[in-house]
Design a protein around this nucleic acid. Structure first.
Lengths: 110, 110
DNA sequence: GGGATTGTCAAGTGAATACTTAAGTATTGT
DNA sequence: ACAATACTTAAGTATTCACTTGACAATCCC
C-alpha cells in the first residue's frame, strides 16, 4: 500500500493553518522553488521553510534540492488518507440517518 | 447554499486534534450526552466541553440541551466544505499530471 | 427539601505554534 | 576570486492550545 496511515492527524493539523493551505494551493498549479513560494506570502523565507517541513512530515509535499534551489511539489497521495477518513464518517452517519428515516416511515404507515 | 465557506480552516484545525477526531467518530454512531462522550476519554468533562465548543464553531457538531443533559450529534453538512477543498486540489493536480503524461508520451513517440 | 447527577464558567499552567532575527553554508554568475 | 543568490540553522518571543482545578448552577429523584 502506498500510504502510511496514522498521518491523518498530521495532515489535518497541517491543513489547519491558512499559510500552509495557501502553499498547497500554490503547489497544485505546479512545482516551484522556496523563494517563489515565499514571494506572495507576507512572511520570511525561514518561516516558509518551517511550514514546508510540517507539510513534508505530513506527506502532503515533497521537496528536492538541486544545486542551490529546493523545488517543492505536491505529493500526489498525501490527501488520500484524510479523504478516506472524511468519506468513511459521511457514509457512516448517512447510513444511520437512512435507517432512522425508514423507521419513521414505517411507524407513520401503520 | 447550505454551507458557509470560510470554515475550512476551522474544520481542518478541529480535526487536527486526536481527541476531537475521537469525538466525531463516536458521534458518527449516534447522538450521546457530554458525560457519555467523556467516559471513554481520559480527560475531564470540562475539557470535553471545550472540544465540543471548537467542534460546534467549526460546524461539525450540533448540541442541544434538554433538562440537565446536553445531547451532542453530528452536523451532517459539516464536512462538505473540507471534502470539496480536498477534491478540488486533487482534480487540479491530477489534471496537471495527466497533461504532463501526455507531453511525455508525445515526445517519446516521435 | 436535600442529595446526587449533569453541566457551566473562570482562572491558571505548561507545552506547542508561528513567527522573527541573525549568523551561517552552498552554489552560481562574472 | 568575489559578489549575489538561495537556502539553512539556531535562538528568542508572543500567542494559542489542551488541559486542570475549583467554585457554581440547574435539574432530577426520593
Amino acid at each position: 500500500m502506498s500510504c502510511q496511515t496514522g498521518n491523518i492527524g498530521r495532515v489535518f493539523h497541517a491543513l489547519g493553518d491558512p499559510t500552509r493551505r495557501a502553499i498547497v494551493e500554490k503547489l497544485s498549479e505546479g512545482p516551484i522553488s522556496v523563494s517563489q513560494l515565499t514571494q506572495p506570502l507576507d512572511i520570511t523565507l525561514a518561516a516558509v521553510l518551517q511550514h514546508l517541513q510540517v507539510l513534508e512530515e505530513s506527506g502532503l509535499v515533497r521537496t528536492e534540492k538541486i544545486g542551490r534551489v529546493r523545488t517543492c511539489s505536491i505529493e500526489p497521495g498525501g490527501l488520500s488518507a484524510a479523504e478516506k477518513w472524511i468519506r468513511d464518517r459521511r457514509t457512516l452517519w448517512e447510513r444511520r440517518l437512512d435507517r432512522l428515516g425508514e423507521l419513521l416511515a414505517e411507524s407513520g404507515e401503520e
